[in-house]
Every structure is written in structure tokens, then in C-alpha cells.
Amino acid sequence: MALPELVLSLLRRGPAHGYDVKRDHDGWFPDGRPLAYGQVYATLSRLERQGLVTVQETRSGGGPQRTVYALTEPGEQRVEAWLAEPADVASSSADEIVRKTVAALRSGGDPGPFLGRQRAAHLRRMRELTEGAADDDLVARLARDHLVAHLDADLRWLDLAVDRLADTYPTQEAGP
């Protein structure tokens, strides 16, 4: 899971402290595993060291100290590049494709270009798998069939996502 990029996309909507980041993440992905606070703060600290987020203010109104983080320009560039780039088909799970789409939509971006690139990446991988299939023995062929079937399932979801976006935003290419 690309947690740093997800945290960056959560900060696209405005400065927030760790608690907000965790709460919004769990709201974006209600079926996923909730983020642990430790993960959130460790990620934010790492992103700060990398110059991708900056500490905007530190509040301590009687309770525990709260640090508010804001996205920097390099952070915005990183998250935009991540949202635009197709997930690595050979190694990533379908989960990452859904996460990118959700992150783009929830942070006010347009997932259309990403969905198009992901479709092409999936088809290219499927083509590679199909090309060598004739030389396979039965066992290799079955393993290959399984990969192709999974790619096909992802592709169906990608097509459906594009269709639904086109229905929802008919005057634009895709996205809000």
C-alpha cells in the first residue's frame, strides 16, 4: 500500500493534523483496515523530513499537543504524479487501483486519465501473457489463465468506473 502518497492526497483538501488524516482515511476506505495512529504520525514525520509536507502550526489548547501539517509544492507534485501513473500490473493488487481512484475523486481530482492509462497497462500485460501461452504445458497454462482472468476482472471494473464517471459528469471527459 502506498501510504505516504495516500497521506499526501488526504492533505490535498487543506492542512490537517494526524487525527484528521486518520479519520478521513478511514472514511475514504470504510471497508479497509483502519490506519493506526502510530503509522500516521511516523508517515507525516517522514514526509516532513522529505520536504513533502510542512508543519503549519502546533496547537496545545490544554490537551495534548497537535501539529497541523500542510502539503508543500513538491508534495503536491508527488501526489499528482502518483495519481496519474498506472499501478504496476505485474506486482500490485487491484486494491491499489481502487485506492488511487478513490483518492483522486475524494481530493477533487479527475481519475479519468489514470483509468485510461491503467486500462492500457492491463491490456499490455494481458497481451504479454497471451503471447507465450501456446508454448505452455498444462500447469503453466493454468497459472497463466488465472492471471489473465484476474486482469480481466480488473479491466471490467476499470471500464465500469469510466462508464459511471461518464454518466455522472457527462459534460466533462471524466471526474468532477
Binding site: 486500462r119 492500457a120 492491463h122 491490456l123 494481458m126 497481451r127 497471451t130 489473465v148 486482469l151 480481466d152 479491466l155 471490467r156 471500464d159 461518464a166
Partner: peptide
């Protein structure tokens, strides 16, 4: 059918 499309050298998608 995506499995058929993946046999091509190039895809042209219409909407």
C-alpha cells in the same frame, strides 16, 4: 471482450 482486445497491437476505444 478485453481478452480479445489484448491480442491486438493497438486499441482504439470509442465512446
Amino acid at each position: 471482450d478485453n481478452v480479445v482486445a489484448a491480442r491486438a497491437d493497438r486499441e482504439v476505444r470509442l465512446r
